[in-house]
Computed example of a mutant assay.
Amino acid sequence: MKVFRALGRGGSFLGSTVPAVFLAVLVLVALLAPWVAPVDPLAQGPDKLVGPGAHHLLGTDQFGRDILSRLLYGARADLVVSVGATAVAAVLGTTFGLVGGFFRGFIGGLSMRATEVVLAFPPIVLALLVVALFGPGTATLIITMGILFTPTFARVTYGQVLSVRQQDFVTASRMLGAGPGWLLFRVVLPNVLGPILVQTSLTLAATMLLESGLSYLGVGVVPPTPSWGSMIAEAQNLALSNPGFLIISCGIVVVTVLAFSILGDSLDRRFDPRRRNRPAAATAGDLRTVGGAA
């Protein structure tokens, strides 16, 4: 509830509430996919490449499978990977950033240098290498992308901790006898959560875009489990005979990534006083950041 209240104060209705509601509905239908999907997403039928109708609201693919059902189950697969990878990156990156920014010196330098090693490799190239070595699968994607986006969280947290650690309330807590663990997680961390929350939203968009790209290349979610990226690859081969399939498959990815990006921008405006009076639309810089990370 605090997130939605923050959104309401930080941006316009179109720039905050609409993306938040869309993503909430997306998560809900993904969780309820077994109950809301019209048919089994793997079930093949005689009606191949038919258009939208009463029996198939969004039509069928080349195997007679219901596109709507596959989109709903694909949302579940993509969200599991995206949320899982973001959670791994947030935990690891925030921990490295907290330790590096608070202790500095040798310990701080070591923690930050460890994350910078990952930055030497382009994300999609390193992801392809890991998947090629260990094989595709949900667990591989979550761990790989989680490590890939750890440096981003580490750098954001590191910069915030450097400014917070000098504040009077941190000094007072230290003088009262608070230990390093208490200072890190009970004093410093709550005061740097704003930028971390913003980065979480942007990373969700980046991981979803990267997962879709890997699935499009055939090294993401393992078939026959539906995923949006693999559906785009299938639809591309049918672009001339069934263009609606391609438009729907690409459109859902674009809208979801854009919703995460706009949500992140709204949160950024809420937690950054310098941006509160700016227009509520997502900035071009944020969108370039998401596209570059993928």
Rank of each mutant, 00 (worst) to 15 (best):
V253F: 01
V80K: 06
V290G: 01
A37Y: 00
A77N: 11
A139Y: 02
P243C: 11
I196C: 07
I196L: 13
T115K: 04
L7G: 06
A30Q: 09
G11D: 14
V50N: 05
Y216N: 13
I67C: 07
R269Y: 03
A30R: 09
W182Y: 14
L72G: 06
F102K: 08
F169D: 00
L189Q: 05
V117R: 02
A75F: 12
V221E: 06
R275W: 03
T283I: 11
T95Q: 09
L31S: 03
G229Y: 10
F153I: 11
V18W: 01
V161G: 10
I262M: 13
Q44F: 01
L238Q: 15
A154E: 06
S227P: 05
T95C: 10
S111C: 14
I147T: 07
V130K: 05
A75T: 05
A154I: 08
G264E: 08
L263S: 02
L28Y: 01
P52I: 11
A127N: 05
A172E: 11
S173T: 10
G218W: 14
V170D: 11
E116C: 12
V130E: 01
P122A: 12
N277Q: 08
K2I: 15
V254R: 02
V257T: 12
G285E: 07
V187Y: 03
A205I: 07
V219I: 13
Y73D: 00
R165A: 10
L49R: 10
V255H: 01
F4I: 15
E234D: 15
G93V: 06
R186E: 10
H56A: 09
V18E: 00
S16T: 15
I247G: 07
R155T: 08
A127Q: 07
V130Y: 00
V198A: 04
V39S: 03
L246H: 04
V221P: 04
V39D: 00
A293P: 08
T225C: 01
V253Y: 00
D66Y: 08
D168M: 11
V36K: 12
R113I: 12
Y73E: 04
Q160G: 09
T150H: 00
V36R: 09
V27M: 14
Q167L: 14
V125Q: 09
G15C: 02
T115I: 04
G108C: 11
R5Q: 05
L148S: 04
R274G: 04
A54H: 03
I67M: 07
E234H: 14
I262R: 06
V192I: 15
F260Y: 12
P226T: 04
V50H: 05
L58R: 06
A30T: 05
Q167Y: 13
L267H: 06
G53Q: 10
L57Q: 07
T207L: 03
L240T: 12
M175S: 12
T152L: 14
W182V: 15
W228Q: 08
F102W: 14
S215D: 09
I142G: 08
C250Q: 00
A282K: 02
A24F: 13
V188R: 11
L32E: 00
I142N: 10
A33F: 13
D66G: 07
G264F: 10
